[in-house]
Design a protein around this nucleic acid. Structure first.
Lengths: 212, 212
DNA sequence: CTAAAATCCGAACGAACGTTCGAACCGAGA
DNA sequence: TCTCGGTTCGAACGTTCGTTCGGATTTTAG
């Protein structure tokens, strides 16, 4: 990896951290300059604009979650196992990349035009994938009053994406505990009397995920 | 209500709408001036600063949720009924005041100093109240592996507060459907084999809640 | 009607913003 | 050694920001 690419990544990572700390719109290029020890003008050797920084953070991050998810879902047929993989994948990546994921969740509307559309399309694809898994899970059960699929999908994302408001990856609660609790909470609620105990989700080492 | 108070409220409501649309930091006082037909300087007759606008929106909004909740919880002893009231209260207020609640959820960290502390204290109180209800619910059951209380509390808030990202109060899904689905989803997940059907939550007319 | 009080606003302030430009610096190939 | 991309940055540009000020206008009270 070239010197240019290394510095480019370092700037992206630092920008993500600051965006997460004080939000995109109240972070100035001068803040990023200060934190990276790159001069204000020098930053523009590595990005076209402040908005492109935000886009690259969001798009890289999303790409990695999606790519990893598709790898891990390959060949798996059982819907409940798929759901378990989906949740574990999302949460463990989230926990290992809190800044980027906070920016992805919190600054969705800070992009405009084509950049917004690009990320938005990816997000829709991801959402539809979750919805499809939930539909499959629901069809394996027969309930008198099934939970509305839209509510269930967004409730799941709500649970998972809200964690940047409270979760400390370095605290007592381990990522695996977080995942299994969310999994139990959601799956038991979504399909009462479901077979949560039949789960065997392959978990991954954090080093695969983390930037550092 | 005096002429001053009416206009003051109108400015707050309009500001909340614009803050929700394009975020606090990228909304200018000139935007609010344009939307309210009050001159830029004239706005400062009704607020001390832009930050005070944000504070008043958040604090008023929170005050109304809390006040209403305490009224409705008065005299209720059954933990599961309390949980139902809590969820219905939160969601129906949210749905009737989407802009304000989005600002409350999304711009929490945009306040600084004492203003932030004030809102934050209220938020903690609200969170602790939810946590206490969940603890009571959990104590009425005995489960082998109970769900972590912290995860459950924030998962519930995640589900509920995420709705500003997708829910359309004027769409097909009624608020009562949203509430009952979230209630079923969460309660079944939190206490499997719980007695969800025993619920009788008094619902309120939207006119009690809505600004307009 | 008159005068005081409340309400309103055009114009301007200094500060901070994103971005650009031309020149300086540097390491590597000739 | 010289040269030439690739890299860096001080300084500045034009714009927009939140806020203020003095006075104009409207409402209210005696």
């Amino acid at each position: 990896m070239s010197r240019y690419d290394q510095k480019h990544e370092f700037i992206l990572r630092t920008a993500a951290r600051i965006f997460a700390e004080k939000s995109y719109h109240s972070t100035s290029m001068r803040d990023i300059s200060r934190a990276t020890n790159v001069s204000l003008a020098g930053l523009y050797h590595y990005c076209k604009s402040k908005e492109e920084l935000l886009f690259l953070i969001q798009d890289n991050c999303f790409g990695r979650v999606l790519e990893r998810l598709e790898q891990r879902l390959g060949g798996v047929a059982d819907p409940i196992t798929k759901l378990g993989i989906f949740i574990e994948n999302h949460l463990s990546f989230f926990a290992a990349n809190m800044s980027e994921m906070k920016v992805l969740s919190h600054e969705a509307e800070s992009l405009g035009g084509d950049l917004y559309n690009h990320v938005s399309t990816r997000k829709d694809k991801y959402t539809q994938l979750a919805r499809q898994i939930l539909r499959e899970v629901q069809e394996t059960q027969q309930s008198q009053e099934p939970i509305d699929l839209t509510v269930a999908t967004y409730a799941l994302f709500g649970m998972m994406n809200w964690i940047y408001n409270w979760y400390d990856p370095h605290g007592k609660l381990k990522v695996s505990d977080l995942s299994s609790n969310v999994m139990k909470l959601f799956l038991n609620g979504f399909v009462p009397n479901g077979m949560c105990s039949s789960l065997a989700i392959p978990s991954e080492s954090p080093s695969v995920w983390s930037h550092g």
